[in-house]
Nucleic acid binder design. Structure first.
Lengths: 159, 159
DNA sequence: GCGAGGTCGTTGTGTGCGCAATCAGAACGC
DNA sequence: GCGTTCTGATTGCGCACACAACGACCTCGC
């Protein structure tokens, strides 16, 4: 009875299952992956995302505003998140020579090590709980569908 | 460059697209639907969820703890959310005769009217931005896949 | 009865977020 | 050069949440 979903009168059962399923799946995965990462490496999912983008960026550094839009966080939110990670020594702020307003967040060696360990844990979780539940065909189909949805919400490329 | 995703080294492109696609789709839909509801009816998505579950429940009322687990919110979070909705006159607290500890949240006529209007808006949005982007076959397939994922996270029925 | 342990809802506290305002610096017109 | 306007990052503030602790109450064993 707990997980039951209303809206029966206006949504076909198949539609309802597909829609509310996604909401529950997202909530469950976010929580499970976050706890897993926290338990194994004392790292929150949002912090992990920052480190991951930095690690894959040119010279292991990114401008604050690019980082904010990459991880879908407001600029002010990123300021505080980077503050925390800087206090933990996982990244540092570096002034931008081209633009004196700007700042880079740059991975430290400690951050790189932390990420290397965390990434294995995280991706194993994503695989076990999500990717492995789909066939290769389904994954490809899903990728296409997400793009169609993002177009519909006007999130194709920006913001 | 904004929406680019790292993890290239460890995840196949198809996997990456399916995984990060879902994260972005969820974020985009949650934001868009919330803004839509807020603009049209001055109602937040979390408030809408409460009203919706109540409307579809027996006698338009639910126990606080059942409601909390239905909308995936902590008990304390629900206490405050119900506080707000009660102040707005959309629901009322009713004592539970069977169990003196318990309380029901019960829809008021105002809440029922508010929901009737909001539900049309919300479902239209879900349809336009999400459901319409999938074929009937895909929707059915998706529903099955979500169940498999929920099993993998241990959220099959409880919590 | 009645005490131990569990459950329901609320409250205190801390955290993380977005929005709006702010400041410094860049970019542009003239 | 010098104002106007725009942009990047930070800060003040309020909000909504989770967690933990609490009081009230139920339940079960004895």
């Amino acid at each position: 009875m707990i997980g039951d979903a209303p809206e029966l009168s206006l949504l076909a059962p198949t539609e309802l299952r597909a829609w509310r399923g996604m909401l529950r799946v997202h909530a469950a995965l976010a929580k499970a992956l976050d706890q897993q990462l926290e338990a194994a490496h004392g790292l929150q999912l949002s912090s992990y995302e920052v480190l991951m983008y930095l690690a894959d960026a040119e010279d292991e550094r990114m401008r604050m505003c690019d980082l904010a839009s990459s991880i879908l966080l407001s600029r002010s939110g990123l300021t505080r998140l980077v503050d925390r990670l800087q206090r933990e020594g996982l990244l540092e702020r570096v002034a931008c020579s081209d633009d004196a307003r700007g700042a880079f967040a740059k991975l430290t060696p400690a951050g790189r090590d932390k990420l290397r360990a965390a990434r294995a844990t995280h991706l194993a979780g994503v695989r076990a709980m999500f990717l492995d539940r789909f066939s290769p065909d389904e994954l490809a189909q899903l990728g296409d569908a997400w793009d169609r949805v993002l177009d519909a919400t006007g999130w194709g490329c920006c913001k």
